[in-house]
Design a protein around this nucleic acid. Sequence first.
DNA 1: ATGGCCAGCATCGCTGGA
Length: 256
Amino acid sequence: MKFATWNVNSLKVRLPQLLDWLALHAPDAVCLQETKLADGVFPLKEIEAAGYRCAISGQKTYNGVAILARAPLSEVAAGIPGFADEQKRVVAATLDGNVRVVCAYVPNGQAVDSDKYRYKLEWLAAFRDWLEQELRRSPRLVVLGDYNVAPADEDVHDPAAWQGQVLCSAREREAFRALIALGLKDSFRLFTQPEKSFTWWDYRMHAFRRNLGLRIDHILLSRELAARCKTCTVDLEPRRAERPSDHAPVIAEIES
DNA sequence: ATGGCCAGCATCGCTGGA
């Protein structure tokens, strides 16, 4: 089974690239973030025509998440239970009655000590508590998304420049480690990887060409799935396209 | 020289992203 996550930064703009990418890679499931579309205008027909069912939780202009899967999706749920949030950042579904899939778009946080940063930390705490329950219910759990956290200095092109900044601050990394402490594995780090592997590059400064990036998009696996994970890679090709998203997809393959 | 980009809004300048 092939699972992927991709922050598309507007599904309206990126739909043609997504359809090409689905045809090329044929993932069993892909989680999208920043669709920026209300559910009523989600391109359901086009995606279904490509062979995918959808679980969506969207809003106009901001945020918005979706799970696309070849197999039937059941027990679809949006948001973090008990955490009141206008922002559409989470959708979960059970794939083929077998694997629980959580798609998340973690808040950016804007700047350390801002209101948005405090919201990010509260959000991550609620997310952790909910995932603890999900794990108890579903030992086969995969949590994919844009975490907006670079877990370690090796995930940052210039750790000195980013030291203490949003996406790299100690409290954000601590919140990420709290997810790992639930028994989730960062699938990318199960394997030897090229140095300077990133998933996001600023649109400015020719950052992609110079590989000035961060690794902030992750696929976390429960122990049971991690034991069967065969590969995890970043697909750089879509970032090279005309009018790319600023994020690249991450793909994990798990023995079924 | 501390900027440079991009998407959406209901636009011609702002917010938000990361």
